[in-house]
Amino acid sequence: MTTPTMIGTHVDVDDLVVRFRRRTALCGVDLELGPGVHGLLGPNGAGKTTLMRVLATVARASSGSVTLLDRDVTRHTELRELRRRLGYLPQQFGYYPRFTVREFVEYFAWLKEMPADEVPTAVDRAIERVGLLDRADDRLKRLSGGMIRRVGIAQAIVNDPDVLLLDEPTAGLDPEQRVEFRDLLRTVGVDACVIVSTHLVEDVTVACTDVTVLDDGRAVFRGGPDELAAEAGEGTDGGDSPIERGYTALLRRVRAESR
């Protein structure tokens, strides 16, 4: 498959607000991302999944603008072309247990409108990249939770997306698999914009080029992992690693300021 190479901004979010009835999930979020692996951190309920769903074109913005690959996600006429270049692993990844790994990934290749002659190679490549080639003909119901998660990643990358959205991708992966997964992220992130939503801070430290921290629907930090670690001052407790301490200190400071 010839992947369109995107130069410049892949994701441009401007003053994004998302409301669900009376609750505001995202409040004035700005984000500008290019190629690379971008971490999205935040406590539960901070709005990470909502932001991922908006970027994945599942949820709609109440106000503000969201541009992916120079296309406005609110314009229906542009959605189809845009979605061909998206990859998405939702937090709750559903699957058809009777399908084999290969069948499932192939199914998504068809759903992503890949050219038929490129599908077999792309499917095998995606399965190989997540380390499941030896289980390609096993039915999904016979796989472990970690393997299922890797199948989810395979379907997300089968079309070599320009924007790859992974919501809690390392949940259920064992340490060795997480290391391999970070390598995969780095490879994909060379050309594509990869956004990884997680609350595993160490994933961000190792794999991400920059990180955005959300709290209570607002982006409260944007910078590199080192800069986040530097948020921890002398004598800060609440974490085993510098970045965890920085993350904890940041949230405490933001919450104190907002009171």
């Binding site: 599942v58 979605r83 058809y96 992503k112």
Partner: peptide, 22 residues
């Protein structure tokens, strides 16, 4: 009801293939 039963509806709503084809 398979989509909903298998919690596939969110993922399927992000694909470009027009729903009538599916």
């Amino acid at each position: 009801g398979r989509e909903r039963r298998r919690r596939m509806d969110e993922l399927l709503s992000t694909v470009p293939r027009p729903r009538p084809q599916l």
